[in-house]
Design a protein around this nucleic acid. Structure first.
Lengths: 195, 195, 195, 195
DNA sequence: GATGAATGAGAATTCATTCAT
DNA sequence: AATGAATGAATTCTCATTCAT
């Protein structure tokens, strides 16, 4: 589907590419997307030329990082969907997305932004995840675990926002749990406003 | 206490300064803090020299924008606190912070970040708002309108995160309202998990 | 000789002009000619506009400072020439030029540079001093107090250089005196290289 | 000792670095240290980026130029010290320093200034030369060729000043020689002021 | 005349990207 | 393929000079 027939990379090239992705993920997460490309190359132990051979622009590198994240999320989401019931799967996946997006989540937000700009690969993997989330949301709503009126775009935005919240909180697990409680309780159907 | 005795600016200078602040607020909001200073100057109809006369660094300009926002928030918060009861005031102020922080909220987040760096003016106005929020939170908790276990840092982080959520949603008022419902319901004390 | 008929300045204007010259002399001397004009204006207690009204360019201000120095030197040289014998007058004037040129002597060197560029006023006062020095040199040589082969340009260059030497030495009077001893002994006719 | 393990530069990089140093030396000398870096880059036939890759600040470039000068002086001084007797070596080295410092000697003066600021490399090479000069001065004084009361700081200041003198004189060799005669005769022990 | 705000042409420096080795 | 040096446009900030008040 899409694009040129990619010939298999030489072993060292494949290793470099993987290493660059790993390093870029970490550096972008810790220091933000503003880091000079040279710094990523150095951290990966390659020259800048090598970086740009594998990723023709800095943006392409960023995109590749995000695509890999989304693919990991998609895989784990699929597994969780299979293993858990509707409600549990929904909330487990919500957590999953947030935890994957630790650190400077300028690009955890990519999930939400991917629809807008023209990054094909990113949009594709984003759509996979979005379809999964749509499914999870629908089933959780059918099961009465999530309020009916919530739509997919709001769920996605809420995920991006919760990522930001967590970013501000840092690592304190109890505080993070309290936030999850707030958000998850808020997602559940509102109690009958009786009286 | 603090600062030099500031003489009143000449009328034209005051006009330019105010205009720069307005324009910077808008441009930073729409395009992000990465915009060149020159662009802000041009949008304000002044030369770059004028911008730097009023704000000696780009960072100082950013700070001034944020301080003004925080001061506006502080004033409105004070008023709402006086007019409404504990619960209503709390939620009204939450909305207020979010609405004030529209757009690229890189600096609505300043509220949370201001404690960390050395920007005195920013930290000061941030502390004013934080004190107000602490008070509102406490009263709302006393009134049983907000769950007890929530602390100020989490409230602030949640505000920053909700800002991000809204940013992703854009202007659709119904969607925004659904998000407020989720967050506000989540903030209320958890229903007795009976049976 | 030269230029427009200058109408007498208003009293306050004359005061400002004099004050600017004094302050500029001091600031240029202490901090170097690189200081922003605004700093000079502030130190003089006037606005930059006033500075530029009196001196149309920064260079003109610098020139005026130098001219005033040269005129002071000329006056004192004339007096010393009248009071002392040839040899003493010569050395006393050498000292005079050096002492007048304390500090960052980027412009004590103006005496030597004035011939080169097109600053009329500066060149004129420089020529007055140079004529005096030529006369002093000649008489000192006639009196056998200074070696015959030395010409005026070398004397002037030597003054500029000795200014630099003193600048490096700072205020230590004994060290300065040792330098004067070296230079003055060197200026005297060489002892017969007998044997 | 000191500094990172420097790997040998690639041939082209080494060529550019050397060329930049050569060009900077010349341009700084002729036009003064105020020249824009871009001009040096252009004169060297490289982009500004290349200049700043080799020398991270303009000041670093200036320092490198001065260090190279000082190292050349140190090497030649060592040789002269070995080849000549005390007195001749002293005066030959004095000449050497002056000739090396032709042109706008804003940085021949670095020899004297290097003690003050924090430029490690510069201070180090300066100290090497100063130690050599101290030794030469001491031996020349022991040999009775230089007046006893002169100390190292004065010698260095005198060198800086003589550089300025020569700068004013330009290239005329006879005039320069007359200056050397004055300074060198002045450095010798004062004749007995008998009678 | 005095003031100081406005101007805008530089200057130093950074960094994504290209290219010779 | 990999390397890292070279490139140069873009950016922040300064300062001599002009001009409205």
């Amino acid at each position: 589907m899409g694009g040129a027939e990619e010939r298999p990379l030489r072993a060292d090239a494949a290793r470099n590419r993987a290493r660059l992705l790993d390093v870029a993920t970490e550096v972008f997460t810790i220091r933000g997307v503003g880091v000079p490309t040279e710094e990523i190359a150095r951290a990966a132990g390659v020259g800048t030329g090598t970086l740009f051979r594998h990723f023709p622009t800095k943006e392409a590198l960023l995109e590749a990082v995000m695509v890999r994240r989304l693919e990991a999320i998609a895989a784990q989401t699929a597994q969780l969907s299979a293993e858990l019931d509707s409600a549990d799967a929904f909330f487990a996946c919500f957590r999953l997305v947030i935890e994957q997006s630790a650190g400077k989540n300028e690009f955890s937000q990519a999930l939400a932004a991917a629809g807008r700009d023209a990054h094909t690969a990113l949009r594709e993997s984003s759509q996979v995840v979005q379809a999964q989330l749509a499914c999870l949301l629908d089933r959780a709503q059918q099961a009465g675990a999530v309020r009916q009126e919530l739509c997919l775009p709001e769920l996605i935005a809420l995920m991006a926002g919760t990522g930001t919240t967590m970013e501000h909180l840092g690592a304190d697990p109890a505080a993070r749990e309290r936030i999850f409680n707030v958000v998850f309780d808020g997602l559940r159907p509102a109690p009958e406003a009786d009286g």
